[in-house]
């Protein structure tokens, strides 16, 4: 009789323990999803801003048709990558978009009229802002993902994770064609 109670007690404790693990896994998963939604909002905003920018500058940049077409194509690719939801593809498409936008902004220097256009300047600032936000939010997302992915693989959490089908998330890397250049260092300070 006593042995039965002890066994029942142990089972009860195990169930409570399992519930605790399950809840902590759900919490961590929600953190990853929240972190991702922060990035996704910015990606969406960026895609919405680009047609406005192209419309605003195409009157000035008659000789840059090719670059503008590339921008539109890169955006289309990024939009479809976002719809598919594959992080590797999104990262690649966004990286390409950043590269081509960087080239477009560099071209602005040749058109003094453009630099005087308030609307274009505001759009450029907003695009720079979204790109920076994506890159800073990425750090946070990857940290959360690392934490969650570790949790579902370590014992004993992996048992609960396996039972309820918790799957690992992908990390998010933006592959930029040209990475931020190595900062110059002046050693004669």
């Amino acid at each position: 009789m006593v042995a039965l109670w002890i066994i029942l007690g142990i089972i009860l404790l195990l169930i409570i323990f399992a519930i605790g693990i399950y809840n902590s896994l759900v919490r961590e998963k929600m953190q990853v999803k929240n972190a991702w939604s922060q990035i996704d909002v910015q990606i969406k905003r960026r895609h919405d801003l680009i047609p406005n920018l192209v419309n605003a500058v195409k009157g000035y940049m008659k000789y840059e048709k090719e670059t503008l077409t590339q921008v539109i194509e890169a955006r289309a690719k990024a939009v479809s990558a976002r719809d598919k939801g594959d992080l590797k593809e999104i990262g690649k498409a966004e990286g390409e978009l950043s590269g081509i936008l960087g080239r477009l902004f560099a071209l602005f220097e040749r058109y003094p009229d453009l630099k005087a256009n308030q609307n274009v300047m505001a759009l450029q600032e907003e695009l720079t802002n979204t790109e920076n936000k994506i890159s800073f939010a990425r750090q946070f997302y990857n940290d959360m993902t690392m934490k969650y992915n570790t949790s579902i693989q370590v014992f004993p959490k992996n048992i609960i994770a396996g039972m309820f089908g918790f799957r690992p998330f992908d990390f998010f890397e933006v592959e930029k064609p040209e990475e931020r250049e190595v900062p110059e260092v002046d050693l004669n300070v």
Binding site: E125, K133, F136, Q139
Partner: peptide
């Protein structure tokens, strides 16, 4: 105002970076 909007944007970026 453009310059001030830019400043707000930069603070938002650092807000995200610092959590």
């Amino acid at each position: 105002i453009f310059e001030e909007k830019q400043l707000i944007n930069i603070v938002e970026e650092m807000k995200i970076a610092s959590g």
